[in-house]
Design a protein around this nucleic acid. Structure first.
Length: 327
DNA sequence: CTCCAGCTTC
DNA sequence: GAAGCGGGAG
């Protein structure tokens, strides 16, 4: 049964002539300026799956070396499925968000069990895989199987918002459902692969979050945000943008905390310690504590117990009375 | 200190 | 809808 998930309120339609200009300008720009990325050179759905999971919340430059190493260690879906989870977690360093390593292997095992080893090609089926949300499902359908589907990540969201809706600060003019609807509306028929890749290249290299290079942008004359910024400055740029954002953040009272005082910092310490521990060897909690926190004391035991439980829940730790190890 | 190709859980 | 989840580079 089809789910009729139309957005709460429809956005104004893009003008057909304006849209055609944007599409041709961006696709031409991509032909000239696209980044040479290895996952654009392959049609292997497994390799593309690996790249997309690695790219969740992780910049291209940091993924590039690990992508090659990971595929060298686990060249096929079947080999990833049969590896020990500890090995997969070990290879994942230093990408972070270690749950993704566990998810990726569980995907491999699930695909082998439920789909005879063939990664699904529809968004609905892809969404059933652990760690695959709407962005990744759309990306795999489009990049691995050339499906004409829209997908929205943070880069695409920002570029589409700026071009068609204007500046995203002080308040975004579309929610997630509306952004996906917009992405579907402006998708050029037959060019979904290049279009989606082009939007991400634009967002990463020209239309960046804090320092857009509007002077280098092929969509300058078609961009609503550029027009908007022209009211504030003769030469719209990151400076104007950052000023507007600062005002917006002050209003929401947003505050960041130092990373080394967070639980996630210590989770990382634990996993990293176990990566360099001989396989199968367990470390008792009483020994683990002082190794990740210098001033570890008796009163920290409950705290450590909670962190360990969280890691076990995420499939990143194997714990028993003797101690902990990678699963 | 900031930024950054999301997903899950509550 | 908000919070949790890594880590490196600038």
């Amino acid at each position: 049964m089809g789910k009729h998930t139309s957005p709460p309120t429809a956005l104004a339609q893009a003008e057909p002539e304006h849209l055609a200009l944007v599409q041709s300008a961006l696709l031409s720009w991509y032909e000239q300026e696209q980044r040479p990325l290895p996952w654009r050179e392959t049609n292997d759905p497994y390799a593309i799956l690996v790249s997309e999971v690695m790219l969740q919340q992780t910049q291209v430059d940091r993924v590039l070396p690990k992508y090659q190493q990971f595929l060298a260690a686990f060249p096929t879906l079947a080999e990833l499925a049969k590896a020990s989870t500890a090995d997969v977690i070990a290879v994942w360093v230093p990408l972070g968000y270690n749950r993704r390593a566990v998810s990726l292997q569980s995907i491999a095992r699930q695909v082998l069990a439920d789909y005879d080893g063939r990664i699904p090609d529809t968004i609905d089926e892809l969404l059933k895989l652990k760690g695959v949300g709407r962005y990744t499902a759309g990306a795999i359908a489009c990049f691995a199987y050339r499906k004409q589907v829209a997908t929205v990540d943070t880069n695409i969201r920002r570029v589409l918002h700026r071009v068609f809706l204007g500046l995203e600060h002080p308040d975004p003019k579309a929610n997630d459902a509306q952004m996906l609807a917009l992405a579907e509306q402006v998708l050029p028929v037959g060019h979904a692969y290049n279009w989606n890749q082009a939007l991400m290249d634009m967002g990463a290299t020209v239309c960046s979050s804090g320092n857009p290079l509007c002077g280098d942008c092929p969509l300058q004359q078609q961009c609503a945000a550029y027009t908007e910024m022209s009211q504030y400055s003769l030469f719209p740029s990151g400076k104007v943008l950052r000023q507007l954002r600062k005002v917006a953040e002050k209003k929401t009272g947003y505050q960041a905390r130092p990373f080394t005082s967070t639980n996630r910092y210590f989770r990382g310490r634990i996993v990293d310690l176990l990566r360099s521990t001989p396989a199968q060897q367990r470390i008792p909690l009483t020994a683990l504590g002082p190794q990740i926190k210098p001033e570890f004391g008796e009163q920290d035991h409950d705290w450590l117990q909670k962190i360990v439980e969280g890691l076990v829940r995420d499939g990143l730790l194997d714990a028993n009375e003797e101690g902990v190890r990678l699963p």
